[in-house]
């Protein structure tokens, strides 16, 4: 089952075409990794999936992206609801300068939940899902900026989970973290695919192999190859993929 279908998508920043005819189907409840050299368009593509690129002036997009059968660019779609369904975790941990509790409660509050008991439940569940509850349960009222980088990133994941998304986009979520925090996040991501669809941009090919079920290789704005991670890394169909994963460029 695929949850997101992308057909012939192109994206321009002004005159520069950053993505060329991307076609991809993202399978549900699995981890899809986007790999490729810097500037290949993988992050841009990721951000298109929840329309975060809307905010950048001069961006033009053609083609279709369907999420659960709805064209996400259609006029009837409320972009805020789209982003509630398709959450995002950023490269650099970016908790709000508020308490840990308020960080996680921000999303649900935005979407209209004010009942204290209900919020407490949501916060606890999100923090548990993000495997950080035990570390923070005694200091929920403390400022989130006092946590370590790895904890902050897991808090950001909890914050994204609190609005109950179906898809979680992760833009190089471990690139700012140390190896130990990285492996904790990787474990977490693998647990999360039980409930969520995860799309993850990574620079780190080992990470893609370790974590993901599917891998998409981008080069110069093109989606070169997409398939099961094992296949892509063991018997790539394309010469360019092989060159990249064997380290001939990149």
């Amino acid at each position: 089952m695929s949850i997101i279908f992308v057909k012939d998508m192109c994206l321009w920043y002004g005159d520069h075409q950053a993505l060329k005819n991307v076609n991809i189907e993202i399978p549900e409840k699995s981890i899809t990794a986007f790999i490729g050299p810097s500037g290949c368009g993988k992050s841009t593509f990721l951000k298109t999936l929840n329309r975060m690129n809307d905010l950048i002036p001069g961006v033009k997009i053609t083609g279709d992206i369907c999420y659960e059968g709805t064209d996400i660019f259609s006029k009837e779609v409320d972009v805020n609801n789209l982003r509630k369904e398709i959450g995002m975790v950023f490269q650099k941990p970016n908790p709000f300068p508020m308490s840990i509790y308020d960080n996680v409660a921000y999303g649900p509050r935005t979407h209209g939940i004010t009942n204290r008991v209900q919020l407490d439940e949501i916060v606890e569940r999100a923090l548990r899902d993000a495997a950080i509850w035990d570390e923070v349960k005694d200091r929920l009222k403390k400022n989130a900026l006092g946590m370590s980088g790895g904890q902050q990133q897991r808090l950001c994941i909890a914050r994204a989970l609190a609005v109950e998304p179906k898809v979680l986009l992760m833009d190089e979520p471990t690139s700012a973290l140390d190896p130990i925090s990285t492996s904790r996040i990787e474990e977490l991501v693998m647990e999360l695919k039980e409930k969520y669809t995860i799309v993850m941009v990574t620079h780190n090919m080992q990470q893609a192999v370790r974590v993901s079920d599917y891998t998409a290789f981008f080069l110069l704005g093109e989606l070169v190859e997409f398939g099961k991670t094992d296949d892509v890394f063991s018997q790539p169909r394309e010469k360019r993929t092989e060159d990249y994963i064997t380290g001939r460029f990149g």
């Binding site: 805020n80 982003r83 650099k92 970016n94």
Partner: peptide
């Protein structure tokens, strides 16, 4: 106010105006 805060809020489905008054202003 770091843009990352606002991005995070928008990515959670808050509208820009909600983001400005509930994240940027408190920050």
């Amino acid at each position: 106010v770091p843009k990352e805060y606002e991005d995070a809020s928008l990515a959670l489905g808050a509208t820009p105006i909600e983001t400005y008054f509930k994240v940027s202003v408190p920050a």
